[in-house]
Every structure is written in C-alpha cells, then in structure tokens.
Amino acid sequence: MNTSQKTVKLGAIAIGILLLLFLLFSFLTEPSTNSPPPPKAISNEKPAGGNFTLTSVNGKQSLTDFKGKLVLLYFGYTYCPDICPTDLGNLAMAYRRLNEQEKSQVQILFVTVDPARDTATRMAEYTRYFDANMVGLTGSEQEIASVAKQYGVVYMKAPTPSNATTENKNYTVDHSAFTYIIDKTGVLQTQIPHAMSPAQIQQQIKTYLTP
C-alpha cells in the first residue's frame, strides 16, 4: 500500500468517526426540541349542539332553516386531502342511495374549520362535487370557533413542514372528524366517527328518520 492510499484510508476513517459522533450527538440532543403542541382535549361527553348562523353562497343560513329535516353536519376544509373527501364521499353515497321521499327529509351541511381560505364560493364549488344537495358554510374565525365549540369540534393548523415555502397556502389543519346527526327539531342526537361506510351511515339515517 502506498502513501496516498493510506492517506485516503485515514481520511475515510476520520470522516466516519466524525459522522458517528455527529449522529450520537444529534440523538442525545433531540428530545427537548421540536415537541408537538399539546393536544387539545376532545370531550367524551355529548356536546350541546344547538342553533347557529353561518354564510353559504346564498347568504346567511341557520340550522333552524332546516327544521323538519334530519341534518348531517360535518366540519372540515376544502384543502383537506383525504379525511374530508372520504367522509363527505361516504355521506354523499349514503344520501344518494335514499329514495326521493327520504332525500327530501335529509340535509348534509359542511362547515369549514379553515375560513381563511374557504370562502362561501369555494365551499359551494367544493360541495357541488359530491352531488348530494350539500350546503357549504363559512363565517368569520370567531363564528366558526363558536359553532365548533357548541359541537365539541377541535381543530388547529398543523405545524407546517418544508413545503410551505412558496405562498403560505400549503398548511393543513388537524381536526376532529365526526358527523353530527341532528334531528328534525334541531336537537343533536349523536355523533358518528370518521370513515363510517355509506351503508352504516344509511342505517343511522333510517334510525333517526323514523319517529
């Protein structure tokens, strides 16, 4: 082995040791930094529910406008890549399987938890996609927060990763993903969890439609 080869070898060893030290160091120092924000509690008690007034593309709308209908209320946002389209898709599927008479007694409402980006127009465009006579509702940050509180909905902007560089538009929102079933008199009856199948939702609708 000649000298230059030896130098290369020693160099590689030095780099290797430095790398190992660096890895060790980063393991040791990691835990204190970067801890996620403490999760807000989702209450296990049934939320109070109740009336609210928000804005659709056709102007102000209140829950009481839908008196006489079974209301399926969902909170999410249009930039939601997976959870909301799954749940809204399943709700829409369930709705579309109802007969005409049942359909006339059921209303799906979609309330945004991201009013900064979700305008009434955007909500209308988005809900139209699901082809289930859905109404999209938005409001001021404060109005949304107060409706969310009534229904025990929890949401917060996710800590944004690398891809938020260009415009600050790429944030996602963590949110609870229940569907609230409100009876024909406006009383909250139950909440059903994320990813219920259309058949399961249809069953729930039937249960609460029959007096």
């Binding site: 999760p39 807000k40 989702i42 890549p81 997976d82 959870i83 929890v154 996710a158 990763p161 891809n163 996602t172 963590d174 949110h175 609870s176 993903a177 229940f178 969890p193 994320h194």
Partner: peptide, 19 residues
C-alpha cells in the same frame, strides 16, 4: 409538484396528518 409520504393518526377522534 410535490410528492410526500404521509400518515394519519387518529388521536381520540382528532385526525392528524404528518409526513
């Protein structure tokens, strides 16, 4: 433009999506 690997955790009903 951007493709990422993501997961969801269901934290007592709170859906969190993370890379």
């Amino acid at each position: 433009k951007i493709t990422e690997l993501h997961t969801h955790t269901n934290d007592n009903g709170m859906m969190r999506m993370r890379q």
